[in-house]
Design a protein around this nucleic acid. Sequence first.
DNA 1: CAGTGGTCTAGACCACTGG
DNA 2: CAGTGGTCTAGACCACTGC
Lengths: 274, 274
Amino acid sequence: MIEGMAQNDNSTQPAQATQLASVSDLQGLPDFAAPAFSPLYQQIKGLLLKSLQGGEWKPGEAIPSEMDLAARYRVSQGTVRKAIDELAADNLLVRRQGKGTFVDTHAEKHAQYRFLKLVPDSGDQSSEGPADRQITECKRIRATAEIAKLLNVRTGDPVWQAQRVLSFSGAPTILEDIWLPAAPFKGLTAERLADYHGSMYALFETEFGVRMVRAVEKIRALPANLMHSSLLKIEQNTPLLSVERVAYTYNEMPMELRRGYYLTSTHHYRNELN
Amino acid sequence: MIEGMAQNDNSTQPAQATQLASVSDLQGLPDFAAPAFSPLYQQIKGLLLKSLQGGEWKPGEAIPSEMDLAARYRVSQGTVRKAIDELAADNLLVRRQGKGTFVDTHAEKHAQYRFLKLVPDSGDQSSEGPADRQITECKRIRATAEIAKLLNVRTGDPVWQAQRVLSFSGAPTILEDIWLPAAPFKGLTAERLADYHGSMYALFETEFGVRMVRAVEKIRALPANLMHSSLLKIEQNTPLLSVERVAYTYNEMPMELRRGYYLTSTHHYRNELN
DNA sequence: CAGTGGTCTAGACCACTGG
DNA sequence: CAGTGGTCTAGACCACTGC
């Protein structure tokens, strides 16, 4: 099927965008639905995405060269290039001049804290040592309606519930409650969480083949309750930054719910707006 | 000088990247300094940026067509295109197929709340009416050392200090303290702030020619003090989201310091991570 | 219909990496 | 040195806008 796409009949004329049979044709959408023109490079992007999801190329590995992909899909290098450009912009791929294009991974220095935006007030991330991680809980429970909805599973489905405390320079600073659908994370234990050296998302990739691609956070201020105060060693009602994060893998599939409580006396959440 | 750049001597061969005399040559940097190769399209981007800063094209206006710019700079359309692509990605320009490329502006629907990430918990931004804005203060003061440093002016320099309260559906929700360097905002008054229909950044553009391009926020949780509680009509010590924002115009020049205090009982700060 | 941005190709050369 | 991504060009045609 790959072979048949976007073939150009006239070899002296450059090929133009060729429309594959679109999904809407098969679904019998009404005529007033937009014809959904999609340029060639978007279709290529879709095919690359499918290969990434399917695990044809694993995190950290190189994908075929632009020339190879151009040959495979029967399009020009420039078209492949544009597709890869977009995937690189989405942080799914990483280009390295002279070496190749690689599947991005959380298991690398540059992406160590990709989703953690809490930084010391000094601004110097490296001034403080690596975070000390303490797993305080890891058990299998049944999803409440609320959790189930956010994780896109059914109420009562099995999910992992974990809790951990992160300390910087010995000071407990972050408390996190984490929920994961049980199925994709079969075999998770507190030990594996505790023993792993690297970010939690790197572990998800390495041990379970689940790559987080995107996340959405809802941030609030709220007073520390009894649990917060005892685990973070602060007084009750101390204002905490509440960060509810839903992380998604490919296909907008939610794979993690994380409720973080950040102590912001010596750190702050840093955000850039463009 | 524009005419002389990147001229191609050989008309049968495509031109290659031509290196203009670089700044470092003039500054006599040591030899071990990187030669700072910069591709043609980056140089074009720089020239476009200079025209934007210089006000050659004003917010909302169309810039010359890609073909015109290619002719002006003596490069191919593709090279201009790539320069514009980057400026569009930075939200400095907006492309509109069939119409042209325009200087982006805050004075438009799609950018109305570009820097305000507080949304109602319902998620439906349009469910609540437009914010009710109440200016509670606008006066000229002398910059404290702290304010001066963030605004990149000298301690004691004149700055505007304004305060306002935003209410959604009648409920006070946001309190903002705002500091602006006095010089670029000559003639600001509480009336002008109050009377203007549109975002504050749109006013800055329209009335003072100051276009905010980028901003950085530091977010914390803190307890409401007396002032917060009275202006937002809440109890003291209610946890508030504290959002300190520094907004920059071209050239990384800070032009506004804004300290926002958000009530997060019915709203939350929404952030997307990629 | 002309003019704009958007897509696609083919081919050349440059910059960088590693054997 | 070969192989990779990065830049640049020239030219063609497509999609969209507005007169």
